[in-house]
């Protein structure tokens, strides 16, 4: 009998999958909200001051924060899976995933700074 030389399971697949699904659910719930707002603005139901008031409200800021976190987690997980699918050389894969993580984190921090008016 041939012995299978195989390193076994990494015990980490579930969390990737879990975060991807969870962030998808959050996105499905929250992503329509900005579009409603957009429609309301273009429809004339909300004027500029009204829009600013809505965006400034602490609840909107919290929802906005959750939305952007979910968006980044979802995009990161999705692109990670694609890189794992197609980039087979570990020496390429790990730096690429790392670079992507840095880019997304930077984008996320910048966006959060705008939401909470840090700068």
């Amino acid at each position: 009998m041939r012995v299978v030389k195989e390193p076994g399971a990494a015990h980490s697949g579930l969390s990737d999958w879990y975060w991807q699904r969870l962030s998808a659910v959050v996105l499905a719930l929250l992503l329509p909200l900005p579009f409603f707002l957009l429609v309301a603005v273009y429809g004339g139901a909300v004027d500029q001051q009204g829009l600013l008031d809505i965006l400034d409200h602490v609840v909107s800021r919290l929802l906005h924060t959750i939305l952007i976190l979910a968006l980044i987690i979802h995009a990161y997980m999705g692109l990670k899976v694609i890189l794992e699918d197609y980039v087979h050389t570990i020496a390429w894969r790990i730096p690429l995933i790392g670079a992507m993580l840095v880019m997304m984190a930077t984008f996320g921090i910048w966006w959060l700074a705008m939401i909470w008016a840090w700068i």
Binding site: A9, A10, G13, L14, D16, E84
Partner: peptide, 14 residues
């Protein structure tokens, strides 16, 4: 289940 919990062994199914 332990042996399947892996991003490649199982979760590569899309």
């Amino acid at each position: 289940l332990d042996q399947l919990e892996d991003a490649f062994r199982l979760y590569r199914c899309h």
